[in-house]
Design a protein around this nucleic acid. Sequence first.
DNA 1: CTGAAAGCGCTTACAG
DNA 2: CTGAAAGCGCTTACAG
Lengths: 359, 359
Amino acid sequence: MAPIRPGSNMTAIASALGVSAATVSNALSGKGRVSPELGAKIRAKAEELGYVPSVTARALRTGRSRVIGLVLPDIANPLFPQIAQAIENAAADAGYGVLIADSRGDSSMQTLAIQRLVERQVDGIVIVPRLGTRIADLGCPVAVIDSPSTPGNTVSSDHWQGGQVVADHLVGLGHRNFVLIGANPLSNVQNDRIGGMKSRLPKGARFETIWIEKLEALAGAGCSLGLKQKVELGFTAFAATSDLHALRALTELQQAGIRIPQQASVTGFDDLVWSSVVSPGLTTVRQDMAAIAEIAVGALVGVIGDDAAEPDAATITVGVTAVAKTDRVPMTLVARQTTASVSSPDFSPASPALEGNDP
Amino acid sequence: MAPIRPGSNMTAIASALGVSAATVSNALSGKGRVSPELGAKIRAKAEELGYVPSVTARALRTGRSRVIGLVLPDIANPLFPQIAQAIENAAADAGYGVLIADSRGDSSMQTLAIQRLVERQVDGIVIVPRLGTRIADLGCPVAVIDSPSTPGNTVSSDHWQGGQVVADHLVGLGHRNFVLIGANPLSNVQNDRIGGMKSRLPKGARFETIWIEKLEALAGAGCSLGLKQKVELGFTAFAATSDLHALRALTELQQAGIRIPQQASVTGFDDLVWSSVVSPGLTTVRQDMAAIAEIAVGALVGVIGDDAAEPDAATITVGVTAVAKTDRVPMTLVARQTTASVSSPDFSPASPALEGNDP
DNA sequence: CTGAAAGCGCTTACAG
DNA sequence: CTGAAAGCGCTTACAG
């Protein structure tokens, strides 16, 4: 097969104009000094010939590919579209392409997926690490998106604050009896969210936390989280650490004949696609992915730098973590269940007011 | 910044062994004839030095980047994770990387996103086209994933057959009164799915089709599809062309106090993440994304070819469509609502049996 | 079987 | 301000 790219290269422009390729390069990059007139002529000719620079040649020469990699623990994660979109946008704005990696759901494949990226000579990698994973030195700059509670430098939403926002909203609706629903007690993100929620529950509020790791396992008939019983026990607010769990709670409650939001409120996190589609809509908290992506990509680009690759093997930079400090990006409430018929803001259940049964 | 990659290149191996770079290249690629002993020595030394080939240099020399692009109309599409994962896997198996493109939700940006990909010299592009979009000649091989009903060469699930599978399932449960729910009457995919469903409704069955394009608009309080009334009119099966619409139907029915699956069955399409999480689970139809991705990537790789780029400008290949024929990949039912209390398989509604009120 | 040479398209010191 | 030269790391005819 013939080459895909149009035939025009710097040499073509140079010879068409009787100048050198170096001058064309200088004119087009604006780096070397070129007379205004010649510069204009060169740019015009480039335009005329439909010149498209060869990123490949540039990469070979400069040692920078202008591509970053994106790694998620599980590409099937419902948050992936939001993240990928934000990263791609931020990268494109910075002149970078985004190569994706998938570990095929297998934890042990994650390293291989990252390695494939490195072999493709990405200039840096954005990683949303698998739960509990420490990212090894990759030999290239890395930006980690994770909870601020995670050791090491990360960019992240302020999940704790997000939890507070949800709790404030629920408390404002009059709720005093909370069921907090999490997926994994080892997740820093989820612990932050739950911690933030708890921190805003008023004196006398009652809460209970349930962790449900394998949500799909409940799909079988008869399986349930027992949420109906919680309602019978006087719980009225069901606050999940993810929209997926909130969806489970919503449908299970509805299935049990509980009216939402009249008898109970359900909230989630992340404003995933279905939260605006279910009836009633899910109150949730949205991450500012654009801001997170900008910080992550910006940090990466900063470390990658603009200087050319000097073949100075002695100073090979290994395992740079690009994000220099822990950035916390605020989250915003998306309230879709704005009413609730909780008896009164001062309502206390018949059972003694507990500070919770949590460990 | 110093170059990221380890210092070892072919020249390093060559000089360490006192041979030429050409021989190293031949030994490592297995293309030129090299004596078995020398070949082994070279491979050992490469291993020892931690040699990683420069994809950049190879790309510059061969004219092929070994990267393909992936373009979806809307990266926020809930099917995106499934597709991206499948394409990435198929591409990795074929030795290709995957660069993503995003049009930022803006239809007019799609062309720009594709152009960015082309400028990065991808060897080919996999496109899931925006509704009604014809893909212009891109100057590089393209594989289109779309409905088989779409003009031109495409790879696709057999959406019609998928519709039949759903209908067969519902009919088998005893349903005779169907509400078909689609998102967009202009979508070939959805028309195929609905067409397939209709084709399997038995004589005397009644059906009605409703199209609901802006699902999110329903999130507001009071908005509804009026599904409760449908139940009152005797409809028992609600079959949507997407899990997102099915989710809306499920929650709206539950919200209205209808018991699922006792009083009505709800089915969707695509086995999106929440279909196994809601209560009760959604019966749905799964696409074989792995097979589709393999066909798409395989076709692309076939067109890209193994031959080197001869600078034969006269035969620049423009707008190749890589997929040579319309492939139809069968879909499989995922039944999660396996019971229904429809009076009897021969039950006919009081109202006259219609062939449907559809145009 | 092995090597010397050219070249993919660009950028970057270094001269002029 | 402009150009000649070298080189990023590889592959591919072509000689030997």
